[in-house]
């Protein structure tokens, strides 16, 4: 894994967060947090509840702007861009509490994921000319490929809210992949999963990385995080406590006392 770090160290970072601060009312959710994510790596963000992890995600995806600092994605400043613009630039995300389109089928959820990569509008839909039908067919084929990739092709026609919770998490990942992202942010992807599903998730994330997608995940499951991450950022009360490889983090005194608990 250290080989990969050395090899990718020469490439410019895909994502650079530059001393970002954010306060809500009197609460300082983030305080001058900086870090970089090299392309093709898996980067984990850990920290106790309330450390500012989800706030960091929301700032990177454009849900709200930082009070101070900036976010540079693929060499361009994206601070102040709207969520849907960032999706078309290649930033996708999943949600901590799983936000599927519950009344729509599994397949339709993934079809919606391709929204920014397709272009049929009101008129196109009404006229339904040959190019619209072709686009629709290609969307369905690609969606089925993605469902097969996460192992849900057998339930494509089921209502998404009827799926067991673990499967919903995998569907959300397939839907995010449908936006064809370069950077995929996963908010606690393993929470609510059983041991078998967590293992399968680890394999899946490795495969996604091999397809060239850079991953940033917020995660509590230590075995998963330590096992697959190239680098780990530790947040504590809105501040960066440490950053490094899993081995460095495991040996870090400050992290051990603040997060893993003092013996």
């Amino acid at each position: 894994m250290s080989d990969r770090n050395a090899e990718l160290g020469s490439l410019p970072p895909l994502l650079r967060v530059e001393s970002v601060s954010k306060a809500f009312g009197g609460i300082q959710a983030l305080h001058e947090v900086s870090f970089e994510v090299a392309p093709g790596t898996i980067h984990a963000v850990i920290g106790p509840n309330g450390a500012g992890k989800t706030t960091l995600f929301n700032i990177i995806t454009g849900a709200y702007p930082p009070d101070e600092g900036g976010v540079v994605y693929a060499q361009q400043e994206v601070r102040g861009r709207k969520v849907h613009e960032l999706v078309s630039l290649g930033i996708a995300r999943t949600f901590q509490n799983v936000e599927l389109f519950g009344n729509m089928s599994v397949l339709e959820n993934v079809l919606v994921g391709q929204h920014v990569r397709t272009r049929c509008g009101f008129l196109g839909a009404i006229v339904r000319g040959p190019w619209v039908r072709r686009e629709e067919r290609q969307m369905r084929e690609y969606s089925m490929e993605l469902l097969e990739f996460v192992g849900l092709d057998g339930v494509a026609d089921h209502r998404s809210s009827d799926l067991p919770f673990g499967w919903q998490r995998f569907l959300e990942i397939a839907r995010a992949l449908a936006t064809r992202p370069h950077l995929l942010l996963l908010d606690e992807p393993a929470s609510g999963l059983n041991a078998v599903e967590t293992h399968r998730l680890g394999e899946l994330l490795e495969e996604i990385r091999k397809r060239g997608v850079t991953l940033v995940l917020v995660e509590h499951d230590m075995s998963l995080t330590m096992g697959i991450s190239d680098r780990i950022l530790v947040l504590h009360q809105g501040k960066k406590l440490a950053e490094g490889t899993p081995r460095e983090i495991q040996a870090n005194e400050a992290v051990i006392s603040a997060y893993l608990g003092k013996e």
């Binding site: 999706v87 929204h115 339904r128």
Partner: peptide, 29 residues
Amino acid sequence: ERLVNSRVGRALRAIHDSEQAACAMGINT
């Protein structure tokens, strides 16, 4: 009917189910 079963219609239904997720799919809600 054509609208509902198209990219546009799916985006509309997506807004109904979860506006936050629809945004995260790149839909200009």
